[in-house]
Design a protein around this nucleic acid. Structure first.
Lengths: 333, 333
DNA sequence: CCTAGCTATTACATCGATGTAATGTGAGAC
DNA sequence: GTCTCACATTACATCGATGTAATAGCTAGG
């Protein structure tokens, strides 16, 4: 049987509450008493029961991180940083995958209210208009990424501006037929919409006419789907001068297809991505991309979350994280 | 204030215990009573407090997954599958990163005993001889991967045999100067040792003399370190005919270096990896690798874990997951 | 009409830690 | 030597759900 405060108290010859006082350190405890208690804890190999503590003071010390798919390199990197920063601050992190299933978010919200978690960092997918009805009964929530509505505190990268800048960078080498990969039909994710708009804004400012045939749709942003979409596109269309993929993952799929077709990057076609995932640096050729500090996203998200835990009533905060266009071999001849 | 069983009971005109009975379904409840209770729960938007439940019955419904680094594509894929399978079975998953810090494992074990988690799936790093002293006071543990000692239930891929088979596959095209990337000096991880031995066993069986100069050390198995190690190696050594990287991540780093040096893959040098991560399929050229079913690893790990939760005393189980050598463009001329 | 024998329900205690309010212990002032 | 005051410590109740043992409600058999 595991030792409890009672056992420790008995052994140290004090009351359970004194043991508790020693652990929490808010109420002063005389030095000799504290010593006895600490020794008793060590001897009994005492570990506090967090369920009991959580029940008593209504806090579990656990936050949940909800992502569409943990296997995606981008999600994995974000998760990594959030877990790391959270641990530094003493939080435990629960992982949830929302996948494409909106019901998962609902389940999540339910559990979020079951007092097992104190807060939630959510990276919504298509679910911009989703189940995230942030009401009073819900725990503090911080959203990651582009979200159309102002539902909760939020950390994001300005996709519009970044896509615009990337497009300008691609055009600066004289390329005019710049295609984008990753647009969506109809209701798309906020990120897809903003990146498309940023791209178009850049074309407009350069006086390059928009060309519908340069928008290559790709609903799911994975290498597989990107490869398929680009492959199909190249069957019926001329090769663009540049290809701006809305994520690095898609760009990696694109590079693979281009290489298989014998197209040289960047000589025949320049390729750029978005997210600056680790593997992009080691792609062949290394990938030009929109880079930003993912650790900053993590720490800002946690900051917003803990601040909101302290004050549930204050106005919603929005934090924009800086980005930069990083040019690598995939665009530089 | 959140509703509790008491509130639901009052509203339904029954006792708290009856509400509990309705939820858990073990004790029979008359249909009309159950209906009243369910309606009351719905009206009050009742969500049970898992801390309280956990305290009462000693189970939290949470398992922990500990990995060295969540940002690694391999770890991310494993984590993805474990989270998915765990959710299907009703478990919540906590993520821990042990990193290179052995103390993290210690902390983890402590928390593992704090009743917030019912079990632990651990992918140890160098910590083969680590803090994982699986004693009576610890919760059920399942280890992932190659571990030298028989400490706990375990799921793994036979690295020795896989490395041997991969080496044989590389040699089957007539290549004899086969280098490996990822060996470690001194005490290395069990995986490194076994893969090296498998490689050597293949050479021996083929009658190819071992050549120390073809062992390229690389302690950390990342693209960065692999690129650096291979780059340095190529400065002072002739180009091998084939390169067997101990992970796909390293292979991706290697491909990048080879490409930058103008070496053609597979014409000048064949390259192979290990793990079959998603990006390997879209590497340029696509990567030959040792493939295995990561979902199987996840489901087996969970099976072992839940089985051990049922019986703490039974003998330790070891499950070997099948692998296969998948040949792609990086080795096929 | 009463009682044995069943089932559905209830009152109460419990899991372990901790806040509250009360008690005990000492030093210092008169 | 008594009284005050500050501080360390304690007894008790509490968080919310649930197992235990006792009770209430019912049918069927006599």
């Amino acid at each position: 049987m595991r030792a409890t405060v009672k056992d420790v108290a008995r052994r140290a010859g004090v009351s359970p509450k004194t043991v508790s006082n020693v652990m929490n350190g808010v109420v002063p405890v005389a030095a000799p008493t504290r010593l006895r208690v600490e020794q008793a804890m060590a001897e009994l190999d005492y570990v506090p029961n967090l369920s009991a503590r959580g029940l008593r003071n209504g806090r579990s010390g656990v936050i949940a991180l909800a992502l569409p798919d943990l296997a995606t390199p981008y999600s994995a990197e974000v998760a990594h940083h959030i877990v790391e920063v959270a641990h530094e601050q003493g939080w435990i992190v629960q992982i949830e995958e929302t996948g494409s299933d909106p019901q998962r978010e609902q389940e999540l919200m339910t559990r979020a209210r079951s007092n097992l978690i104190d807060g939630l960092i959510l990276n919504p997918v298509v679910l911009d208009e989703s189940a995230v009805k942030v009401g009073v009964a819900l725990p503090p929530v911080v959203l990651l990424g582009e979200v159309s509505q102002q539902l909760a505190d939020r950390v994001f990268v300005d996709s519009f501006a970044a896509a615009r800048d990337m497009t300008l960078a691609l055009a600066s080498s004289g390329r005019r037929r710049i295609a984008v990969l990753g647009t969506t039909q109809g209701r798309g994710s906020a990120a897809a919409i903003q990146r498309t708009q940023g791209y178009e804004a850049a074309l407009d400012s350069l006086g390059i006419p928009r060309d519908e045939s340069l928008l290559i749709p790709c609903e799911k942003w994975t290498p597989e789907t990107a490869a398929k979409a680009l492959g199909a596109y190249l069957e019926g269309n001329p090769v663009p001068e540049a290809l701006f993929c809305f994520t690095d993952s898609m760009a990696i799929g694109a590079l693979s297809v281009l290489w298989k077709r014998g197209l040289r990057v960047p000589e025949d076609i320049a390729v750029a991505g978005f997210d600056d995932i680790a593997d992009g640096r080691y792609a062949v050729p290394s990938l030009t991309t929109v880079s930003f500090d993912k650790r900053m996203i993590a720490s800002e998200a946690l900051r917003l979350l803990t601040e909101r835990m302290g004050d549930r009533t204050r106005g919603q905060q929005v934090v924009s994280v800086d980005y930069s266009v990083v040019e690598r071999d995939s665009t530089q001849v």
